[in-house]
C-alpha cells in the first residue's frame, strides 16, 4: 500500500510539469523510477518503452507498464490514474473560462517559452531510451537512420517500429 501511494504521489507530481506531453516526461520518469527509487533496471525501462511504442493508444500508457512492473495490476491502475487524474480535474474546472485567457499576453509568453524546453525534453527522451537499451554502434546507426528517414518521409510510425523489431530479431542491432 505504501508502495502504491508512493507511486501515485511521484507520478502525480510529474504531471504538474508535464508540458509538452508525456513523451517529454520520459527523462523524469527514468530519473524517478530507475535512478532514485530503483524500481527497475535500465534495460527493463527501455523494454517497457518499446512495448508501449508497439501498442495502440495514447502514449501516456507507457506509465501503465511502468506501474505494472512496480506493483502488478494495482500498480498499473495507480500509475495511470496518477498521470491522468490531476490535470483532468484542473481542466474540468478551467475549460469554461479558457476563452477569457486566450489572448492574454502571459498565456502567449508561456506557450512560446514552453516550446523550446519541450524540444530539449523530447531530445533527452531519445537519448535516454538509446542509452537505456544499451545500443551498440549498429543500434545507434539504426536510430540515426530512423531519425533521418522520419524527417524526410511521412511514413506511418509503425513501419519504423516493425523494421526495428525485425532488425532486432535478425540479430542486426
Amino acid at each position: 500500500m505504501a508502495l502504491l501511494a508512493d507511486l501515485f504521489l511521484q507520478f502525480s507530481i510529474l504531471t504538474v510539469v508535464a508540458f509538452g506531453g508525456i513523451t517529454a516526461m520520459l527523462p523524469e520518469l527514468h530519473r524517478v523510477v530507475v535512478e532514485q527509487r530503483q524500481w527497475m533496471d535500465e534495460t527493463t525501462f527501455a523494454h517497457l518503452f518499446a512495448i508501449a511504442q508497439a501498442a495502440p493508444g495514447p502514449n501516456l500508457l507507457v506509465v501503465s507498464l511502468i506501474g505494472w512492473k512496480v506493483a502488478g495490476i494495482p500498480g498499473a491502475i495507480a500509475a495511470t490514474l496518477a498521470i491522468s487524474l490531476p490535470m483532468s480535474l484542473v481542466i474540468f474546472f478551467l475549460y469554461r473560462h479558457w476563452e477569457r485567457f486566450r489572448d492574454a499576453p502571459w498565456r502567449e509568453a508561456i506557450q512560446t517559452g514552453v516550446a523550446p524546453l519541450a524540444v530539449g525534453l523530447v531530445c533527452t527522451s531519445g537519448w535516454l531510451i538509446g542509452a537505456s537499451a544499451g545500443l551498440d554502434l549498429r543500434g545507434i546507426l539504426l536510430t540515426l537512420a530512423c531519425t533521418g528517414l522520419m524527417s524526410v518521409r511521412s511514413w506511418h510510425p509503425l513501419w519504423y517500429i516493425g523494421a526495428g523489431a525485425a532488425a532486432g530479431a535478425l540479430g542486426l542491432v
Binding site: 527501455a46 508497439a54 538509446g130 537505456s132 545500443l135 530512423c146 523489431a165
Partner: peptide
C-alpha cells in the same frame, strides 16, 4: 529482448525526429 532492443532503437529515432 533483441526485438525490444530493435524497437527501442527505432523508437529513439522517432523521438529525435519529433524533436527536430
Amino acid at each position: 529482448q533483441d526485438m525490444l532492443r530493435g524497437i527501442a532503437a527505432a523508437g529513439a529515432g522517432l523521438l529525435f525526429a519529433t524533436a527536430l
